[in-house]
Every structure is written in structure tokens, then in C-alpha cells.
């Protein structure tokens, strides 16, 4: 592995200072929180910012608060490890705790942050390689070229989004706050993802993600995230499914908005299965109802040969994991 490229280092003490550094340096700057994703791409020369703005000294950006009325608020720089140890999360959002535990290794979770995991860059076999390895082929779309090594002749990039905390947070209806010198804006977590492999999130160069909020868990609801990977630690997902269901008297609740199924690592953004609520609402939580959603989910994704696991295998596993996630979420709702 090559050494790190050089850059100017800034460690602002407040969100305000961070915003003004971002507007000063714009595209020439990158934010660094934990760095477990960014530093590797810098070693591989996928990213060579002139300025790194570290969030390590910004106070209050790692706070976790819970209020019964307003729900959970997490600072973007909270580490995944502290998230898994936070009493309100363990108590009220156990599925979020479990999803955070599925990221990387113990060592990575102790540095990596929630904001960083949400803003994880998209990945591809032909992209996440050293600059030396990449020299053997013409540059792809994501490295500034005009070809795609995954889908021949493609005008677009198919790099895959692999963050494990996004799908479960989307299923729970999370929102994110983006701060800048000009103020702040709050968008739903789903809107954070552009679906563009080249530029996977909607954070503008002068903005930074400062806070993630989740509504209080609704009565009778349960969520789960199932992650498929080659090894049970360290690996990125080769596919994942998050599900939220609402139960009422042993059956699925009657309101379609009580349901959400989000597929992960099969495209450039986590993708919600359309109509899942209508297919499940009011039904008995049995195989037939789950099967319908599972098949719609399978038909909605087109994984490519750019991560571990063949596209055929990943596509075949979509319905399996959807049913698995729905069953787990139903069990969580009933307990």
C-alpha cells in the first residue's frame, strides 16, 4: 500500500468554523471524521484533496439524545462503537445497534463514524484498487474516464453503495441535517442518496452532514437488517435488506405506511421496494404475503459483476433475504 499523499490539515473547533473552511476551500477540501474509508481511497490515490478538514475537535458532534416525543438524535461524528453501547439505542432501537455492529471490524467501528458510514463512497472492483493496478486499464467514469469496465459501452457508473446503517435508518424514517455557512437544511435520509455511482450523496461541497434524527418507535412496529457477506466480520455486504413492519393482533397492521423494505448493495443507492406496504398491510404474516414482496423486490434490482458474489447469486438471494428480514422484523414487533 502506498503512503498517504500530502495535504493541509485543519481542525476546526466548531460547526461554524467547519462551515466557513468548507466554503473557503470548496472542491479542494474533504471532510474527515473517522477516516476509515477516506484514508484508504487517499492511499490508493482515488482521492487527493489539498485540504482535509478534521471533525475531531468539533464539540457536540458525537452526542446521542433520546426524547420520547421527538425521538433519537445522533451527532454525525458518533463512532459506530459508541452507537452500539449507547443506552437509548440499545433500549429503543436494538435493530440499529445490530446493524452498526455489522460494519467492518471491532477496530474499524472504534474509529468509524455514523456520518461517515452514511456518506460512504460507492465501491466497485475496478475502482477500489491501487493506482498502479488501475494503470493497466483505461480510466473508468468514476476515475474521470469515459468507459465502464463492468457494463461494456455504459455511459454511467455502476459502483455500489454498501453502507450498512443507511437501509435500517431509512426503514425507520430517519432524517439528516446538512449544515453550511448559509444555514442548514433537513432532508429525509432517502433523499441523501442520489443513485449516481460517481457522486453517491447529495451533500454539496460547502455542506456537511451534522445530525441524524429518527422518530420514536411506533407502537407495534419492528425493524430488522439482514446482511449477506462472505465472512461474518470485516466484509462489506454483497447484499442486504432492511425491513420495518407493524403488527396488530397477530396480523400485519392495516396502514401501508407502517411497512418499508429497503434493499442494499445492489445498486448505487439503498433502494426502497415500491408498494411493499400495500402488499403487506392487513395480511396474515405468512409466507404468501412475504413471497409477493420478495418477488417484486427481486424484479426491481439488477446487480452487476462489480462486488463479491456473482450478480446471479445476489439476485437469487434478494427474495430469500427479504423474507428473512420481514420475519425478523415481525418477531421484533411482536416481542
Amino acid at each position: 500500500m502506498r503512503r498517504m499523499p500530502r495535504f493541509e490539515y485543519h481542525a476546526p473547533a466548531s460547526a461554524g468554523e467547519t462551515a466557513s473552511l468548507l466554503s473557503e476551500y470548496g472542491d479542494a477540501a474533504r471532510l474527515i471524521a473517522g477516516g476509515t474509508d477516506l484514508l484508504i481511497s487517499m492511499k490508493q490515490r482515488l482521492s487527493t484533496p489539498e485540504h482535509l478538514i478534521s471533525l475531531s475537535s468539533v464539540t457536540g458532534l458525537d452526542a446521542v439524545d433520546y426524547d420520547e416525543k421527538t425521538g433519537l438524535r445522533m451527532g454525525a461524528a458518533v463512532t459506530l462503537a459508541s452507537l452500539t453501547q449507547s443506552p437509548p439505542i440499545k433500549d429503543k432501537y436494538p435493530a440499529l445497534e445490530a446493524a452498526a455492529r455489522k460494519v467492518g471490524s471491532v477496530q474499524v467501528r472504534n474509529i468509524a463514524t455514523l456520518g461517515g458510514n452514511l456518506c460512504l463512497d460507492t465501491r466497485c472492483w475496478y475502482y477500489n484498487q491501487s493506482d498502479y493496478w488501475r494503470q493497466s486499464r483505461p480510466p473508468c467514469h468514476k476515475t474521470g474516464g469515459e468507459v465502464c469496465h463492468v457494463v461494456e459501452g455504459s455511459k454511467r457508473c455502476f459502483a455500489v453503495y454498501s453502507g450498512d446503517t443507511a437501509p435500517i435508518l431509512m426503514a425507520m424514517g430517519a432524517e439528516v441535517k446538512l449544515m453550511s455557512g448559509g444555514g442548514e437544511r433537513v432532508i429525509s435520509l432517502g433523499e441523501l442518496f442520489t443513485g449516481d455511482g460517481l457522486r453517491p450523496n447529495a451533500v454539496e461541497p460547502h455542506e456537511f452532514l451534522s445530525e441524524i434524527s429518527v422518530p420514536p418507535p411506533a407502537a407495534g412496529s419492528g425493524v430488522a437488517y439482514v446482511k449477506l457477506r462472505l465472512r461474518e466480520e470485516v466484509d462489506f455486504p454483497i447484499m442486504g435488506v432492511a425491513a420495518r413492519v407493524t403488527m396488530s393482533d397477530g396480523a400485519f397492521g392495516s396502514a401501508p405506511q407502517g411497512f418499508k423494505v429497503v434493499l442494499n448493495a445492489v445498486g448505487s443507492a439503498p433502494v426502497e421496494v415500491e408498494g411493499a406496504g400495500e402488499m403487506l398491510a392487513g395480511k396474515a404474516p405468512e409466507q404468501a404475503a412475504l413471497e409477493e414482496v420478495a418477488q417484486v423486490a427481486r424484479a426491481s434490482v439488477h446487480p452487476q459483476a462489480n462486488t463479491a458474489g456473482t450478480p446471479e447469486y445476489r439476485r437469487m438471494m434478494v427474495p430469500v433475504l427479504v423474507k428473512h428480514a420481514l420475519t425478523e422484523a415481525a418477531a421484533a414487533a411482536s416481542s
Binding site: 490539515y9 474527515i32 484514508l39 471491532v106
Partner: peptide, 16 residues
């Protein structure tokens, strides 16, 4: 160990 917790020292800036 950073504050008693294991971390990957190759993925952390010394400055941080």
C-alpha cells in the same frame, strides 16, 4: 489501543 479500545492505526491520522 486508543483510550483502551482496539483500533487500526493504519487508518487513523496521527493528528486525529
Amino acid at each position: 489501543l486508543l483510550e483502551g479500545q482496539p483500533i487500526c492505526s493504519c487508518c487513523l491520522l496521527a493528528m486525529d
